[in-house]
Computed example of a mutant assay.
Amino acid sequence: MTAIPARLDHLVLATPDLAATVDDFTRRTGVAPVPGGVHVGLGTRNHLVSLGGTSYLEIIGPDPEQPEPSGARPFDVDSLGAARTVAWAISPPDLDAAVATARSRGYDPGEIRPMSRRRPDGTLLEWRLTDGDTQHPSGLVPFLIDWGAAPHPTASGLPTTPLLSLTATAPAPEEIRPLLAALDTRLPLGEGPLGLSFTVDTPRGPVAFG
């Protein structure tokens, strides 16, 4: 059985040094992530790689060309000592219905809020996602995303490293599994230190990232 969750939209590899992490990914895999765009006002930018189908990897870090943001940068990139897989997202058929269903099952994935970034070609992408203090802080429970009318990132011809597996460990896995079930998704989850890891297929063979 494959260890890839249904409706996986993307994985988030956060880093305090975007250029260094992109270089490391390129060196290890033989595949170079491409610039995704700038999160204006948030102080971050990203690079992207397709994981096959409509799933992709987002490598996100501080944008040195932006002024310091008024608040914390997304995914607490400033507090990271090294690159780390910090979150994942699923794309349900109906975002609002999925949030309502999860709440009825005892888990609040957070408020739905609009987001945007500008691609290198100037195109503004706008989407909605769940965010907020009610999300589980572990990063093991996915946030939800709806791209609406925006072109999905994988539609732009990204370089590809097919995803072979996505797994996680947690000190108390039994606390996480009901939350995944509330979102109608699954994640291979074992007992251990808190963490997400994934493996991709590359021209240099399978490569794992934590």
Rank of each mutant, 00 (worst) to 15 (best):
T161N: 06
S91P: 12
R103V: 10
P159T: 10
G110E: 08
L189Q: 04
V86R: 14
G43E: 00
V38T: 14
A98E: 09
D184A: 02
A150M: 05
T202C: 06
G210H: 15
G205I: 06
P206G: 01
F75Q: 09
W127R: 08
A89I: 11
G192K: 00
A100L: 13
D24A: 15
A97C: 12
T15Q: 08
H152K: 09
L187I: 05
L144S: 04
L166Y: 02
Q66M: 09
E111M: 14
L8T: 04
W88F: 10
V12A: 03
L183Q: 00
I60Q: 11
P162G: 04
E58H: 10
L166N: 03
V200T: 03
T199Y: 11
V12P: 07
T15R: 04
R117F: 02
Y107C: 02
P93K: 00
L8E: 01
R27I: 12
M1C: 15
V22E: 00
A149L: 14
A82L: 11
V86Q: 11
A3T: 05
R119E: 12
D121A: 03
A102D: 04
D201L: 08
S70T: 15
P5T: 00
A170F: 04
Y56V: 05
T44Q: 05
A6H: 10
G52D: 01
A19L: 13
P178H: 02
H47D: 03
T123M: 13
G157C: 06
L18P: 03
D76Q: 14
W147Y: 07
R105K: 14
R45N: 10
H136W: 08
P67T: 10
S50L: 04
A32Y: 09
R118Q: 13
G41C: 00
G36W: 05
T21L: 13
L180K: 04
P153W: 02
V49F: 13
M1W: 14
L140T: 02
V200S: 06
P153S: 04
L187T: 01
P193Y: 12
G37L: 03
D17E: 13
P67Q: 08
I4R: 01
P114L: 10
A97N: 12
L163G: 02
G106I: 10
S138H: 04
L163D: 03
G106P: 10
P120Y: 01
T123E: 14
L57C: 06
D78I: 13
E65Q: 14
A72N: 12
L196S: 07
I60K: 09
T21G: 11
R186E: 15
D96Q: 15
T161C: 11
T199M: 10
A168D: 04
E58G: 07
V141Y: 07
P188Y: 03
A98D: 09
L158P: 00
D17S: 11
T167L: 10
G195Q: 05
L166T: 05
A98P: 09
P153H: 04
L125W: 09
L144H: 01
T2P: 15
T161W: 07
H39Q: 08
G110N: 03
H152W: 06
G53N: 08
G53V: 07
P120A: 05
L11V: 06
D17W: 09
A102P: 03
S50T: 06
I60W: 11
P16H: 02
P67W: 08
